[in-house]
């Protein structure tokens, strides 16, 4: 169990780290940003990856801020499961989660997002979004947002979408001379971009961007 002190700012970045198990408690006015990016590379010798991330956040003091950004680009028969549990015990805090999956081949992804706002946690803003891009007919995604809100003066929203690459955008690009393979890459990169942008270390950010492209 990790804890953030009063007013502490922390950024945690995990690139290709399997089976994260984080449990973090935040004291008042602390600011936490977590970026989790997975893009397992396949090698013939490697076993199928089955990674389960659990990220638990607990707002123990007032005015805490939490941002969770997660991206998994999974192919072959690999699986990535991400579970977030954000609990607002006390009022005034904000939490923001953007969780994205890009699934190719027979890859599987799942997202479970538990968000709990307890009765004393008034004036909380909690925002959760899960967007998934399926690149193959055999890829599967399960998504399960779970909101439990016991306070009455809060702003909370959640949304989940799962879709495929936009065929009309691909044709538009082709009509400008861009072949479908390049067009597809551009659309996938566009989908992933806002998560990669969250890594504040420029060197690492560019390295991740290049490896994903």
């Amino acid at each position: 169990m990790l804890s953030l002190n009063k007013g502490e700012h922390k950024e945690l970045v995990y690139i290709n780290e399997p089976n994260l198990d984080l449990s973090i408690s935040q004291a008042e006015d602390s600011v936490l940003r977590i970026v989790v990016i997975d893009y397992p590379h396949s090698t013939p010798s490697r076993h199928v990856l089955d990674s389960r991330h659990t990220i638990e956040i607990h707002h123990a003091g007032t005015n805490c801020q939490t941002e969770i950004y997660a991206l998994a680009y999974v192919s072959n028969k690999d699986c990535v499961h991400t579970c977030t549990r954000v609990k607002h015990d006390i009022g005034g805090g904000t939490s923001k989660q953007i969780i994205k999956f890009v699934l190719d081949d027979q890859a599987q992804g799942s997202f479970q997002g538990e968000l709990k706002i307890l009765p004393d946690a008034q004036k909380v803003s909690a925002f959760q979004t899960n967007r998934n891009l399926l690149l193959s007919q055999q890829a599967t995604m399960r998504t399960q947002p779970q909101l439990e809100i016991y306070a009455d003066d809060v702003k909370a929203s959640h949304g989940a979408t799962t879709g495929q690459l936009d065929e009309s955008a691909l044709f538009y690009m082709q009509q400008r001379g861009i072949d479908p393979a390049t067009g597809r890459k551009m659309l996938i990169n566009a989908f992933m971009q806002d998560i990669i942008d969250q890594i504040s270390d420029e060197t690492l950010r560019e390295q991740v961007r290049q490896q994903l492209e």
């Binding site: 082709q174 400008r176 001379g177 479908p180 551009m186 659309l187 990169n189 566009a190 989908f191 971009q193």
Partner: peptide, 23 residues
């Protein structure tokens, strides 16, 4: 292919130009 036609110089101004977020 559509992209070859474009590179050969056929251009379509679309009736409904497509939005491509992030590009």
């Amino acid at each position: 292919t559509p992209e070859q036609r474009a590179r050969e110089g056929v251009f379509l101004s679309f009736q409904y130009p497509v939005e491509i977020p992030g590009v």
